[in-house]
Amino acid sequence: MALLEVQDIVIRFGGVVAVGGVSFTVEDGQICGLIGPNGAGKTTTFNCISGIYRPNEGRIRFAGQDITAAPRHAMVGLGIGRTFQNLALFRSMSVWENVLTGAHADGRAGFIASALAAPAVRAEARAAEARARELLTLLDLEKVAGQPVSALPFGWQKRVEMARALIARPKLLLLDEPAGGLNHGEVDELAELLVRIRREFALAILLVEHHMSLVMRVSDKVVALDFGRKIAEGTPAEVRADPEVIRAYLGDGQGTPHAA
């Protein structure tokens, strides 16, 4: 059974069909790239999986459970973590506090126990802090832990988002254009990081990305969308050679797709 099953989802905005019946699966531990030209419906599909939109038709199942109608705040508890395309950090907080917010879903302490600093609350906080420290080390953020997150360069802020998503120990990590705004060297580091994260955390990754060389380099499987429909699915090599994909990216001419 696949970890994530997207079945025939249709999403309409008014009369416009943004996604018209897309299906695909992501297996345990798999890195799946979701590609397509601008307006292909990648981000809309992505937002459906993370609960931001509800599909008008179709089903989304995660680990065998129907999550089509699950509320947004339930996703992380089910095991789906995410990052955001244009960064969505908590700007008044330090790097350290941002990462700790990611552990919210793991905590149980409520208002009263927290106000009284009950021993169980402190134990829970210490466990979250230990994991936060590990992630800061993994993502090379220890030195900036106490800094306000808004003072960091863009690429570093993206790593903070990654740490914030990973601290909840997701089974599936949704990454919305992680390479956006990064330079060449940073994209190389990101590719290594993704492969390493998958290995160390034993999780699956769904990657929405424009940066074609990154997708082709790290993905086990690639799903290509165009005009809200799936036009290809397979290994990076298969998808790259698919005539539909070539047409979608380059019109009817010849050649291979490259970074959009």
């Binding site: 509320p71 705040h73 992380v76 950090l89 927290s114 914030r164």
Partner: peptide, 28 residues
Amino acid sequence: NLVHSRIGRALMAIRDNPTAAQAMGMDI
């Protein structure tokens, strides 16, 4: 204690960025 706890961080997270707060599992 409250402000420096999981709950306090959630309150500030909701203030700073509600969408991201929901993605962290916070029931706004």
